[in-house]
Design a binder for these strands. Structure first.
Lengths: 130, 130
DNA sequence: ATAAACCTTAGAGTCTACTCTAAGTCAAGC
DNA sequence: GCTTGACTTAGAGTAGACTCTAAGGTTTAT
């Protein structure tokens, strides 16, 4: 059977427009069509889209994801370079997590300040700088 | 004394262009000028810019950061709403961290697959799907 | 058989966040 | 006094990722 574009869209919280855009950009060369020309997604296709969303949501540009898909199409001779891509990308994800942690500290510090400012009686409130 | 725009740019890994853009967008209403019209940044200004970068780097749009700066300019009567903004934004940062963790799992799984594919002898390599 | 609800395409438009250009001012060093 | 290298502005241009429109095809329900 398979899934229609809007079923897939719903599943991944995308729009059908976005999926067609990804297809146009070369991210979905594996998706087959029905006799009438409609895209028909298989469960395997969903796995591919899940991976594409993972890469996209961790900041990889569409062009680089496309590059990866192209490497996949070239078969085993690109295994090593694909693996290296994931090693590199993993590093970037770890960096993002570190950065988020640092920024969370700043936000928590700010929240402490606001907790103070908001709890003391109005007439003794400090004037916030800026 | 204070800092020039390019000194600040270097400090925050931005360009002078970007800082002027932020100023134009209303993010830096507090920055003073020298007699000749050049921006002169104080240490307090750097703290503000650090916070702005924190918000920006955790995905807050420029417009919302501008809104926050405007609330700051309005003084104590906006303390509660500003605090609420940080509470809401903190939640979003935690969500981002959760999402990153999930995506890291997917990447690590993929890396395991590639470790296998890349280590077995060439003539027995599985053909990767797609 | 006709309307509703899907799907298709090419291509134009939008939004965000820069990024750059052109033309000009000012201060310091040779 | 003139060049170099800061800085200034307004405004145009760009990149990335959608987002939408127009025109049309197919399937299903009444």
């Amino acid at each position: 059977m398979g899934y229609t574009i809007s079923q897939v869209a719903k599943k991944f919280d995308l729009t059908a427009h976005t999926i067609r855009y990804y297809d146009k950009e070369g991210l979905l060369p594996f998706v087959d069509r029905s006799k009438t020309g409609n895209r028909e997604f298989t469960d395997d296709d969903l796995d591919w889209i899940k991976l594409i969303c993972c890469l996209k949501n961790t900041g990889m540009p569409i062009k680089q994801i496309k590059q990866y898909i192209e490497w996949c199409l070239l078969g085993d001779k690109t295994l090593e370079i694909r693996r290296q891509m994931f090693i590199d990308h993993r590093k970037e994800v770890l960096k993002q997590m570190e950065d988020l942690k640092e920024n969370l500290k700043t936000i928590d510090h700010k929240l402490k300040c606001y907790a103070k400012s908001c709890n003391i009686s109005p007439n003794t409130r400090q004037v916030h700088s800026l």
